[in-house]
Design a protein around this nucleic acid. Sequence first.
DNA 1: ATTCTAATGCTACAATGTTGCATCAAATAC
DNA 2: GTATTTGATGCAACATTGTAGCATTAGAAT
Lengths: 156, 156
Amino acid sequence: MPKQRHAPSSAPPQSARGLITAHGGRATRTRVALIETLQASAHPLSHDEIGAALAALGIAHDRVTLYRALDWLVEQGIARRIAGGERAWRFEIARHGKHRHAHFHCERCGQILCLEDIAAESSPNLPAGFKLERAELVLHGACAECGPRGPGTVAR
Amino acid sequence: MPKQRHAPSSAPPQSARGLITAHGGRATRTRVALIETLQASAHPLSHDEIGAALAALGIAHDRVTLYRALDWLVEQGIARRIAGGERAWRFEIARHGKHRHAHFHCERCGQILCLEDIAAESSPNLPAGFKLERAELVLHGACAECGPRGPGTVAR
DNA sequence: ATTCTAATGCTACAATGTTGCATCAAATAC
DNA sequence: GTATTTGATGCAACATTGTAGCATTAGAAT
């Protein structure tokens, strides 16, 4: 696993329970662990990665439950779903007030990183009648780990 | 193994057969129909849509063959694969010389449209060591058809 | 027409995501 | 602290999207 890159996150760490109850949900073990896992990660996580993290915490995790819990977090605006390069979704915590940022998909190692400096809310010159709700900017290429040195085994 | 690989010739309305043979491939019915279908479409097509189009032309189409034929087109630079909103890929013909453009994903009807005016090659201020190979910009929202009038049945 | 082999079309499988329903447990009421 | 309510979970079964292996077909060359 590549190292983490930290962005200057100016987020006052919101408690997981607080976030959940503030949205009228029940603070279950799964949801709390989910939020804390996402908050602790510097980059968006896939279902697999999240499942592994929960397993490491000794928390039961059914695949379906995970999907539903994540869907709920996204619905409530607590988390965000991003498309990335492969067909699997990835999830990241929505830092309070933080604008949407671009992501970088390394085609060597498959990792997805946040590019907090690059805004995704751009190019508003849409055709008439179109309503923009959100923008997703994904840059593809080789990350610092894979680029200069030998490329890692490709994750297609 | 495919022999040569050609740099994108900048020929205008290229014939399907010409495109294929220029890249050292065999001009099969499937590939020809595939290219012509993509060329005739104003927006990127999903596998389903392509399959339906081929079926309408009375051309046998196995799902696997379609995947492989499309992969080949992308490898050769004849077509481009874009991620869109759902987990399925969509394909569009790579217009000779045309720069990459952004796409609009309507979350009401599920349609994906090309925004030729909006370039996707932006924001090059990447962290050191990162190599950008391509950028994908997808705008999500409601298209002109779905926005003003009643929203179509959601295609989540 | 014959040959060579790139493409095709099976079949079988892998990965990702969804639906329905019975059960459990988080919050509330007592 | 116990009982009640129902949101959330966990399981099974299924749907969709994409891949791998291999025998067969048909495009191009001889």
